[in-house]
Write a protein that binds this DNA or RNA. Structure first.
Lengths: 231, 231
DNA sequence: CCAAAGCAAGAGCAGTGCTCTCGATTGTGT
DNA sequence: ACACAATCGAGAGCACTGCTCTTGCTTTGG
């Protein structure tokens, strides 16, 4: 009967209130962190009573899940935008562009970064709906390495110990069947290591150790790219 | 008048109660995570009333700080023990031994690991007393690389971009004046990257991606060692 | 047009961190 | 040996939290 955005005043009002709740929750998250996110405070700020909020989110954890999905999509979108902007450049430039976009997003949204890449909340296990948004930046890296492999080849796939071969082949089959297993293993490791660099900077482990974080990160990321075989 | 451990019944009782509080708190931390650590529950389990607990820890954050320091010392001790056991071996073996000790400790104490290497608690900033315990595993890695450099030399210090030279020299002056700046930069990066690998495994980012985490980690760590110039 | 569904509001429960006061116990200086 | 001071445990209480249940009101759809 109508477009997907206006199939009834009731449904639209629900959408708007849901969005307003998420917006206010995101504000509190950015201001105070996930631990101090209070349903009652969100409701208070929105001029409603706390119990009314439960019509939209059955529990605080469900609100957090919504914010987690949004955060994954936000960082994924930033990374994809940076990647598109470097579309014409070489694989190392594209790799670096995505990595720096991840770091920039993390520095700009520290609490949201902590929500998705920091310690998970105690009893909480992420539902499967978070998997696709969480995969976006990873898929970007896979695409970059795959393109490089197709176009110009990868430099020396480093020798793989025999004991890791089955696992590497399994990962390659799942993630990028056209890439050599050794490259896929190196890629997955570099992916995790990249977020180690970002996390250490963001969570204060680099205090009194690394001063010029920008340049240090750029260099470390370039070495990671080199490690997975990008020219 | 007496040994340092028994300079008065009152003081000793205080030590014992303090230790009992920390033990029970650590139990709850391991069982439920930092967010659900409740002063009242700790007091209840110890048969005292919650207000009495404030005679020993002025706030919940102070209790957490004590647990953080203990956790840093615990993982540092495990790493040092593993390092000592591999004292006679080559630098790569020692590097791998420490890395695996870190991972093993993390897998055995996930909530304590999250407490020290995960997202920091919201308003909390670590006091300077946490710095020495937090440095123990890092110092171990520095010692390994320094020994390797002294004994057998490091393989090709990778070329350092000019823009990073001042920062690398500053880090080297602070951390290991006898090492080439490029090696120190690579070492610091590898240090952060190692904890990226551990964190991704522990916090579920490797779910549906890496199955044989043990072997994958071993290989990734060996490549990190190679990246800092260890034979 | 009327029943059914969706909604906001309020009261209430169990729990939290933290403060303050009040006795009781303990340690110490004279 | 005694009195003074410091320390300690207990209880009440405040302001807050997540969450549930019930009560009415409004909107919606048959």
């Amino acid at each position: 009967m109508s477009s997907s955005t206006a199939q009834g005043a009731r449904a639209r009002a629900r959408m708007e209130v849901t969005a307003a709740i998420k917006d206010e929750a995101r504000r509190q998250l950015a201001a105070e962190g996930a631990a101090k996110l209070s349903l009652r405070a969100v409701a208070r700020e929105l001029g409603m009573v706390s119990s009314a909020l439960y019509r939209y989110f059955p529990s605080r954890d469900d609100l957090l899940t919504a914010l987690i999905i949004d955060a994954y999509n936000s960082i994924g979108e930033s990374a994809e935008a940076a990647h598109d902007k470097a579309a014409g450049a070489g694989p190392v430039q594209r790799w670096t562009a995505v990595a720096e976009a991840v770091r920039d997003w993390a520095l700009r949204h520290p609490h949201e970064y902590a929500l998705i890449y920091g310690s998970p909340v105690p009893g909480y296990t992420a539902p499967d709906t978070t998997v696709p948004p969480a995969s976006r930046v990873g898929l970007l890296f896979i695409g970059i390495v795959r393109d490089a492999h197709r176009d110009s080849g990868l430099t020396e796939p480093p020798p793989l110990p025999a004991e890791l071969c089955p696992e590497a082949e399994r990962m390659a089959a799942d993630l990028a069947p056209d890439l050599p297993p050794a490259a896929v293993a190196a890629l997955v490791a570099a992916w995790a290591e990249l977020f180690g660099l970002v996390g250490f900077e963001l969570f204060g482990q680099f205090n009194r150790v690394v001063e010029d974080r920008e340049r240090f990160f750029r260099h470390a990321v370039a070495r990671l790219a080199q490690g997975v075989g990008l020219a």
